[in-house]
Amino acid sequence: MKAALAEHQAKKQKVDVLIAEYYGENPDGLSREQFVLAKASAEASLQACDRTVEKLSTKHSMVTVPAGTALREAWARTPDLGWRRQIVGLALDKVIVHPGGGKYCYKRWIFDSSKIEITWKV
């Protein structure tokens, strides 16, 4: 994970330097077409690195759940929203919100859980 983050940072910096140099002094003398190609290539490499970091961080999320602990217990003890998003991404396939709204009760709407359909991956 540490190596992937370092690689991501290096690639991000490369894109930033490429843009700054082109719009600044342009020491390499890149033409517009060369700049566009170089930038597209650098950004594609950065996106591939993003996907690698995402995969590694998602696997890391499950590792942080202590052995013998139910996921529900770990969820209740961990207030980190980033961690919770990754766990939801691992467990849920899709969430469907059916039309129909909620229920109106004394000047406010009440959430109707029967309108929500959850499809689990497992």
Score class of each variant (00 low, 15 high):
48 A>R: 13
57 S>Q: 14
95 V>E: 03
19 I>N: 01
5 L>N: 08
73 E>Y: 13
39 K>V: 05
88 V>D: 02
47 Q>L: 09
109 W>Q: 09
60 H>N: 13
101 G>Y: 06
92 L>W: 02
3 A>L: 13
61 S>D: 11
112 D>I: 05
73 E>Q: 15
46 L>R: 02
61 S>P: 02
90 L>C: 12
117 E>V: 10
62 M>E: 11
25 E>G: 04
11 K>V: 09
88 V>I: 15
10 A>P: 00
66 P>S: 08
96 I>A: 05
84 R>T: 00
114 S>N: 08
117 E>Q: 15
121 K>R: 15
70 A>W: 13
98 H>M: 12
93 D>S: 07
66 P>W: 08
10 A>K: 14
73 E>W: 09
26 N>F: 11
74 A>W: 03
25 E>T: 15
15 V>W: 02
56 L>W: 00
41 S>H: 15
100 G>V: 07
75 W>H: 06
35 F>H: 02
27 P>K: 11
34 Q>M: 06
30 L>K: 12
17 V>W: 01
105 C>T: 07
26 N>C: 10
19 I>Q: 03
119 T>I: 12
40 A>R: 15
21 E>D: 14
27 P>Q: 11
105 C>E: 13
100 G>F: 08
76 A>G: 12
33 E>L: 07
20 A>P: 00
106 Y>G: 01
116 I>Q: 06
106 Y>C: 06
11 K>I: 10
63 V>T: 09
40 A>V: 06
25 E>Q: 14
41 S>M: 15
80 D>G: 05
82 G>E: 06
96 I>M: 06
77 R>L: 13
16 D>K: 14
117 E>Y: 07
47 Q>S: 05
82 G>Y: 03
21 E>A: 02
35 F>M: 03
79 P>T: 09
26 N>Y: 05
43 E>Q: 15
46 L>I: 08
4 A>F: 07
47 Q>C: 01
